[in-house]
């Protein structure tokens, strides 16, 4: 791993309505950026190594099916699988797309 690798900070909207007493909140995770990393790769890494309860949806991981649409950083809806971590900057916010007034939370 080269010395220059950045540590990325992910602020992710978490809420599991199935879980009693669970409240909507933002949770912060940190990971080291790898070359060519996309948000798809990063989120999987967070889930596998830090928080196995992290929920997200990827199917084609090729920018085709539309499953991974989310609001990335302030107000940018995009397909997470084809968004390189290099694009949004060091702090990445991720919020679900449907049914949420996400801009409010983002502010």
């Amino acid at each position: 791993m080269d010395d220059q690798a950045r540590v990325l900070k992910f602020q992710i909207f978490r809420y599991n309505p199935q879980k009693k007493g669970d409240k909507p909140r933002m949770v912060t995770y940190e990971i080291t950026e790898a070359p060519g990393m996309t948000i798809f790769i990063a989120l999987n890494e967070i889930r596998e190594t830090q928080d196995p309860s992290l929920q997200f949806d990827f199917v084609c991981r090729a920018g085709i099916c539309g499953s991974c649409a989310m609001v990335i950083t302030c107000g940018q809806p995009d397909l997470a699988c084809r968004t390189p971590t290099a694009a949004p900057g060091r702090e990445i916010k991720s919020l679900p797309l449907p049914g949420f007034n996400s801009s409010e939370i983002c502010r």
Binding site: N16, Q18, K19, R47, P52, S53
Partner: peptide
């Protein structure tokens, strides 16, 4: 064995 031991929505 799981780290996240809930039976509902649980990717693990």
């Amino acid at each position: 064995a799981l780290r996240n031991r809930i039976s509902s929505s649980n990717p693990e």
